[in-house]
Design a protein around this nucleic acid. Structure first.
Lengths: 227, 227
DNA sequence: CTGATTGTTACAAAACGGTGACACACCCAT
DNA sequence: ATGGGTGTGTCACCGTTTTGTAACAATCAG
């Protein structure tokens, strides 16, 4: 399992340093930003697994950052922990309305932040959709159970193959490039050749047997799941 | 469809406010209570569609409230989501299983609570409540009685093993990651190695003897209880 | 036909999970 | 207090599976 990246946004250098040190010490990669605009740019580019976001920021404040991120498709699911000072109850609540996953009131202990980060990451991004399943005559995919049935018989997919299939089905009908697959299935920190995807596509097709043709090649572009 | 009423019982004002706001924001009516006795009175009078109940409460604690409600004919079917923090508390909820429909470990994210509320309300018929018991030829698990029988003979499980088995059975069919098990069985404050789960799975399998294969390994992901 | 793109195969390295051993903290009876 | 028994978390080791890559074959488009 590769390291998760946590992004910390805080204008107070002391607190920022403390947070970065603590979180890094717990084995995460840390990216920092000191104001809202930088936070937005970095968050979109680096795709951190989680954001620790101060409410009070120079320029664009935490709420706006939160709102902007929730608006973007790619960043909407990014969990956010808000840092608030006491007495900002209204602000805090509004922040949560905008999709923050949790909040911590200052002054906080580094340990507390870590616990929340871990708790949220463990659960993974709660999916808004109930148990996404692909179901057609003789071909059954259950993402929650992590199971694939073909003509009633379970077939064994490795973790990567399953993630790849899930990604294909989630975007059924749409072509995705190899790089997109690398990003979503392997993670954005993966440094390898794009042709790796080809190999896994092949293995997947092989195991899908009669349904191999659902995974279509779009020459010059990438792959697509046929609806 | 008229708004459902959700009742939130929690003595910490911050958390209560947060919950109330979040749930209200999702389009439910919210009633709150800060201690066990008030909770009982309000629950009987207002008949909420669902109860979010903290385990630790001043005076009468969450379990007692739960027990009382289950006793009353009018309130017995009321779904309850328990909030727990520490490992020992998880013990009590899982062990006694006094009719709570689900439980969430603190710290939780507002989004998570909402998902569970929706999930339970969607189930509608209380008959679809997850059965507290696993029963098959020669293999009998009674979560309430905290007892496991194999071919009629009781087998001795330690507290951790039982909680682990309970968690597996509660989510039978679904894969859960090691981290998720740590969260639900050990509690969020546990700071240890994820492979600890492996060891307990092994001990559990050992004791399950002929039914060891009910606990399936999903390589690269986690574990799953076979239906 | 030809260059580019994709499919196929083989293989070594890495990742993963099972297992036994062990240290430690408890608890309880001595 | 002492000592054995029990439950628990961690570690190191090992066989197996998985995975990324390279090299080669097949296919496609122009």
């Amino acid at each position: 399992m590769s390291k998760s990246t946590i992004m910390v946004v805080e204008d107070d250098q002391d607190i920022l340093g403390l947070l970065a040190y603590t979180i890094r010490g717990a084995g995460f990669d840390v990216v920092t930003a000191a104001d809202g605009l930088e936070a937005l740019v970095q968050a979109r580019r680096r795709r951190p697994a989680l954001l620790v976001l101060d409410l009070m920021l120079p320029g664009m404040d935490g709420l706006e950052v939160c709102r902007e991120l929730k608006r973007g498709v790619e960043t909407a699911a990014m969990p956010i922990i808000m840092l608030t000072a006491r007495g900002e109850e209204i602000d805090r609540v509004v922040g949560l309305e905008l999709g923050a996953d949790d909040y911590v009131v200052k002054p906080f202990s580094p340990r507390e932040i870590l616990l929340r980060i871990r708790a949220i990451l463990r659960r993974g991004a709660p999916s808004e959709k109930p148990a996404p399943i692909w179901e057609e005559e003789g071909f059954h995919v259950d993402l929650e159970a992590h199971r694939v049935l073909i003509n009633g018989n379970p077939i064994e997919l490795t973790a990567t193959e399953f993630k790849l299939l899930a990604e294909l089905i989630r975007n059924r009908g749409k072509v995705q490039t190899r790089d997109q697959f690398l990003d979503k299935v392997w993670g954005y920190q993966f440094e390898g050749y794009a042709r790796t995807v080809d190999t896994h596509i092949r293995r997947l097709r092989q195991k899908l047997g009669p349904f191999a043709d659902r995974v279509e090649t779009v020459r010059g572009v990438g792959y697509r799941f046929r609806e």
